[in-house]
C-alpha cells in the first residue's frame, strides 16, 4: 500500500514535463473523446447531418463538370468528366473542412484551454477524425458514381490510403500553422476562408493538372494539394491518367517539410496559449 512514488515532476520556466510525443500518446483517449464529441455534435445538430456530406460534393461536382467540362471543354483524361472532378473533390473537401475547422479549433475551445491541461495539439488534430468520416461517406458516393458511368477503377485504387495520409498531413500542417497564428493574431481568421476559396481554383479540382504547360509544372507543384489530387486521380482513373512523378515528389517533400515547420512552431507557442487566448 505505501508505495513510494519517486515519479517527481519538475516544473521550470520553459521546460517540458515529459517527452512531447509520449505525452500525446498518453492523452489519446482525450483525443478520441473530443473527436467523438465533434462527430456527435455535427450529426445531431443539423437535420441535414449526413445528407449534408452527400449533397455538398455532388453539387460541387455537377457545377464543375458543367463549367469546366461542358462549357470550357477541358480534356477529361479519357474518363467521364464527373468522375475526374469527383476524384479531386474527395481530398479537396477533406482538406478544406479540416483546415478551416482545425484553424478555428483553439478559439472555439478557448474555455477548455484556460481551465485544463492537455497537449494542445489534440484540439486541432481531433478535427481530422470527424472529417475522415465525411470522407468515407463521400467515397461511397464515388463508388455509386462509378457504377452509374459503368467505370471500372484501376487496381491502383489500393494506394488511396497513401494519398489520403498525405492529405491528412497537408491539412493538419496548414491547420496547425493557422491555428497558432490565429491565437496570436486574431485577424488570421480572415485568411482561412480566403485560402479555401482561392485554393479550390488554384488546385486542379475542376480540371486535370496535365493542362498546365510543362514548364510551369514544377512551380505548380509547390501547392501541396496538387500532389495529393494527382495521386488520387492516378490511383482511381487508371492507365489514361499520366502522372508527373518528379513534380509529385516535390509536392510530397514540401508537404512533409511544411508539416514539421508548423508543428515545431505550434510546440514553441503552445505554452503561452492559455495566457493570450
Amino acid at each position: 500500500m505505501n508505495r513510494i512514488d519517486d515519479n517527481i515532476e519538475v516544473l521550470e520556466p520553459g521546460k517540458r514535463f515529459s517527452s512531447y510525443w509520449g505525452e500525446l500518446w498518453q492523452y489519446r483517449e482525450l483525443f478520441y473523446f473530443l473527436s467523438w464529441r465533434d462527430f456527435l455534435v455535427r450529426y445531431k445538430q443539423t437535420v441535414l447531418g449526413v445528407a449534408w456530406s452527400v449533397i455538398r460534393p455532388i453539387l460541387t461536382m455537377i457545377v464543375f463538370t458543367v463549367v469546366f467540362g461542358k462549357l470550357a471543354k477541358f480534356p477529361s483524361e479519357g474518363v467521364p468528366y464527373a468522375i475526374m472532378v469527383y476524384c479531386a473533390l474527395l481530398p479537396w473537401q477533406f482538406f478544406a473542412t479540416t483546415f478551416s475547422e482545425a484553424g478555428n479549433s483553439l478559439l472555439a475551445n478557448a474555455r477548455m484551454l484556460t481551465k485544463i491541461y492537455f497537449p494542445r495539439l489534440i484540439i486541432p488534430a481531433s478535427s481530422l477524425l470527424v472529417n475522415l468520416i465525411d470522407f468515407f461517406i463521400s467515397f461511397v458516393i464515388l463508388l455509386g458514381l462509378m457504377a452509374y458511368y459503368q467505370f471500372m477503377p484501376s487496381w491502383k485504387i489500393v494506394f488511396i490510403p497513401v494519398f489520403l495520409f498525405m492529405a491528412m498531413i497537408t491539412s493538419l500542417g496548414a491547420g496547425v500553422l493557422i491555428v497558432t497564428l490565429n491565437v496570436k493574431y486574431r485577424d488570421f481568421r480572415y485568411v482561412v476562408p480566403f485560402v479555401v476559396q482561392l485554393g479550390l481554383y488554384v488546385s486542379p479540382v475542376g480540371f486535370s493538372s496535365n493542362i498546365i504547360p510543362g514548364k510551369w509544372q514544377f512551380l505548380y507543384s509547390l501547392n501541396p494539394m496538387v500532389g495529393v489530387i494527382d495521386g488520387f486521380r492516378w490511383s482511381i482513373l487508371g492507365e489514361g491518367y499520366t502522372m508527373n512523378w518528379a513534380a509529385f515528389s516535390l509536392s510530397a517533400a514540401l508537404t512533409v517539410l511544411f508539416f514539421f515547420i508548423s508543428v515545431t512552431y505550434f510546440k514553441r507557442m503552445e505554452k503561452s496559449f492559455a495566457d493570450i487566448i
Binding site: 519538475v10 484556460t114 485544463i116 503561452s272
Partner: peptide, 17 residues
C-alpha cells in the same frame, strides 16, 4: 494554473510528486 500546467511559470521551480 501554474500547478495544473495550464500556464508556464516565468521563474522558480516546482516539484510535484
Amino acid at each position: 494554473k501554474i500547478l495544473s500546467k495550464i500556464t508556464d511559470l516565468t521563474e522558480g521551480r516546482i516539484e510535484i510528486k
